[in-house]
């Protein structure tokens, strides 16, 4: 069995009287993307801060790449990459200078900044100062900075939040490439569609508590209806049928619908991750 790259056991943290995370436990394997799904203030960013050594857990243990996060181990820190929600770049420096500076903190002198900038679609803007970048360009540069040390564990905090479709697509592609390379990825988001598309597993977190953790497919199967909804145009209007997948003769009924000349739409009735989240926590992801 592959050893987990990120392991969290019973971790809790409170800001004064406010409990940000409560008794959190989960693991992320190398090459796996774990989508951390929850609304604003659910405890996603606090979890990342704990795992990257910015906060010390008040109870429980957390390990990244086999090292306790409280150990402040530079070897572990040299092998992680963090993409923050805030665009914390040096604005008076160019994109290339930002990358070179962060590479130097990892002791890397020959980092290929051109290649990193090309991967995020900024090859022709590398010499421009970051102060002149758009929000999407900054986020893409943040992503390039996260990858500057070819990390084994990646912590991505809302990496596509508020971005245009092109920038979002570029970042999603990079995330998949990094997982294929073997990096363990903890991705926080409140975008259900993104979590569904990228994540091998998703974890639902709300008010600091972990409600469930499973593959998107399993969650949808567990919480959705095993049926297909068919809409067919007929002479006297539109007919809508719901075909249960557990009914006898389901194959024939679907075949009839598909071959019908008036077929308009055919959809499975599996639940969306957002619907499941609301069902489990009683709270929407955009709240």
């Amino acid at each position: 069995m592959t050893e987990a790259a990120i392991r969290v056991e019973g971790v809790s943290y409170a800001y004064g009287d406010i409990e940000a995370v409560k008794d959190l436990s989960f693991e992320v394997a190398p090459g796996e993307i774990l989508g951390f799904l929850g609304p604003n203030g659910a405890g996603k960013s606090t979890t990342i801060k704990i795992l990257t050594g910015q906060l010390t857990p008040q109870s429980g243990t957390a390990q990244v790449l086999g090292v306790d996060v409280t150990a402040d181990d530079p070897v572990m820190q040299a092998q992680i990459g963090v993409c923050f929600e805030e665009k914390n770049l040096y604005e008076s420096m160019s994109g290339k200078e930002n990358l070179r500076f962060f590479a130097s903190l990892f002791g890397m002198k020959d980092v290929d900044t051109e290649e990193l900038l090309r991967r995020v679609g900024l090859a022709d803007r590398g010499k421009d100062r970051v102060g002149g970048y758009s929000k999407g360009m900054r986020q893409r540069l943040m992503m390039a900075r996260t990858l500057v040390n070819s990390p084994k564990a990646l912590f991505l905090d809302e990496p596509t939040d508020g971005l245009d479709p092109v920038s979002s697509q570029t970042i999603r592609k990079l995330i998949k490439e990094e997982a294929d390379r073997g990096a363990a990825i903890l991705l926080t988001t409140h975008d259900m569609w993104e979590a569904d598309e990228l994540s091998d597993r998703v974890a639902f977190i709300n008010d600091g508590e972990l409600y469930t953790i499973d593959t998107p497919e399993n969650l949808k199967l567990k919480h959705g209806k095993r049926s297909v909804k068919v809409r067919v145009r007929e002479e006297d209007g539109v007919r809508e049928d719901t075909v249960s997948l557990d009914d006898a003769g389901v194959g024939e009924r679907i075949k009839d619908a598909v071959t019908s000349p008036g077929l308009m739409t055919i959809h499975t009735e599996e639940a969306s991750l957002e619907a499941i989240f609301i069902q489990m926590t009683g709270r929407g992801l955009d709240e």
């Binding site: 530079p74 963090v82 923050f84 002791g107």
Partner: peptide, 14 residues
């Protein structure tokens, strides 16, 4: 204020 210090402190920099 630009929070670049947090970016520094998740590298081997202390």
């Amino acid at each position: 204020q630009q929070r670049t210090v947090t970016a520094l402190l998740v590298t081997p920099a202390t």
